[in-house]
């Protein structure tokens, strides 16, 4: 694996916050002070359980949700709050998104051709209708569909094929960076592998950078160079994917990894699991200090009082846990 140092930063997320008002003056802190960097050409995986803020992070980065605080820099330039239309357009062309549900993310009243070409039209990337059509055909073939599909409607396709259309739409404007928000969780196992292979091949061919959001840890490990783990709106650990899976530092990451059932009966029989007690607390009123402490098997007194710092425990391995903070290490 290539060391993170000396590589070009494509996206920098600094102290990103996204709060939702949920009435009665209550605030849901979906993403609270998350910072990370995505390097050019890599795949950063983002995992966590439902409600941990991983999708909100993705959507806030691309400005689908206005951020409550923090900064997102794309190639050093601010993404949020860009007023000037031409600059905004330039940014949205470079950053694209693939959504989770291939049934809900395609307009049922548009033909595949028009769905894919929408971005091309908006950004004026085709000079005439002939060129537009040629682009669409080329894109369809890139994602493993054929040109006959162009004039059909989404309902004529299976889930896996629709997800391919979603990918073609994202590719249409020649982006550098793609946020894939659970792109395979609605698909069957054998189809998941097809879509993941497609995404990896496209990355190789076009030098794309991915933010891959998913809850399936084994798939995330497969596709990602580095993986970040989120819990209740916070990033708790981030490192290269092999290292994260071989030597997880945060107790939550350890529990999460040990909870995945492995498709191997012998391993399952002999395995010792860390089974977490209880459920994820409400993000409206999260626990003080470390948010994981209420379920953490190793919680100390300090965890309730002090929020753990997000720091580099080893080179390229970030963690937010008092167990790995020199100041509190020994209880």
């Amino acid at each position: 694996m290539i060391a993170a140092q000396g590589r070009e930063k494509l996206l920098e997320v600094k102290n990103l916050k996204k709060y939702f008002n949920v009435g009665h003056k209550e605030v849901l802190k979906a993403v609270d002070d998350v910072s990370f960097t995505i390097y050019k050409g890599e795949t950063l995986g983002l995992v966590g359980e439902s409600g941990c803020g991983k999708s909100t992070t993705g959507r806030t980065i691309i400005d689908l949700y206005g951020a409550t605080g923090g900064q997102v820099l794309y190639s050093g330039k601010e993404v949020h709050g860009v007023k000037e239309k031409s600059k905004k357009k330039e940014l949205t062309r470079k950053m694209q998104m693939i959504f989770q549900d291939p049934y809900a993310s395609l307009n049922p009243r548009m033909t595949v051709k028009d769905i894919i070409a929408e971005g091309i039209d908006i950004h004026g990337l085709a000079k005439n209708s002939k060129e537009r059509q040629a682009r669409v055909f080329e894109l369809l073939e890139t994602v493993g569909l054929n040109r006959d599909h162009a004039s059909r409607y989404p309902h004529e396709f299976s889930g896996g094929q629709r997800q391919r259309i979603g990918i073609a739409r994202a590719l249409a404007v020649d982006p550098d960076f793609i946020i894939a928000d659970e792109p395979i969780s609605a698909l069957d196992v054998s189809i998941q592998a097809q879509v993941v292979n497609l995404l990896q091949n496209l990355q190789k061919e076009r030098g794309l950078t991915y933010l891959f959001i998913a809850h399936d840890l084994s798939m995330v490990k497969h596709i990602s160079d580095r993986v970040g783990v989120m819990y209740l709106g916070n990033m708790v650990e981030l490192s290269e994917s092999d290292e994260l899976y071989d030597e997880p530092l945060h107790p939550y990451t350890q529990a999460l990894l040990s909870a995945i059932p492995v498709p191997d009966p012998n391993v399952e029989r002999s395995r010792e699991r860390i089974i977490l007690e209880g459920d994820v607390p409400s993000p409206i009123d999260p626990p003080s200090g470390c948010r994981f402490r209420t379920r953490c098997p190793m919680a100390m007194d300090v965890c309730a009082q002090v929020t753990p710092k997000w720091q580099e425990a080893k080179e390229g391995h970030w963690v937010a846990c008092h167990l790995h903070d020199d100041e509190y290490k020994h209880g």
């Binding site: 299976s158 896996g160 094929q161 069957d188 196992v189 054998s190 189809i191 998941q192 592998a193 097809q194 993941v196 292979n197 990896q200 840890l217 084994s218 798939m219 490990k221 497969h222 092999d242 899976y245 990894l257 995945i260 492995v262 498709p263």
Partner: peptide, 24 residues
């Protein structure tokens, strides 16, 4: 075989998943 191959492995890294082509 296809079903077992298309699952990513948690330990060790495989370059490409063996996908089953086509659909049911």
């Amino acid at each position: 075989w296809g079903l077992l191959s298309s699952m990513p492995k948690l330990h060790g890294k495989s370059e490409e998943l063996l996908a089953i082509p086509g659909s049911p």
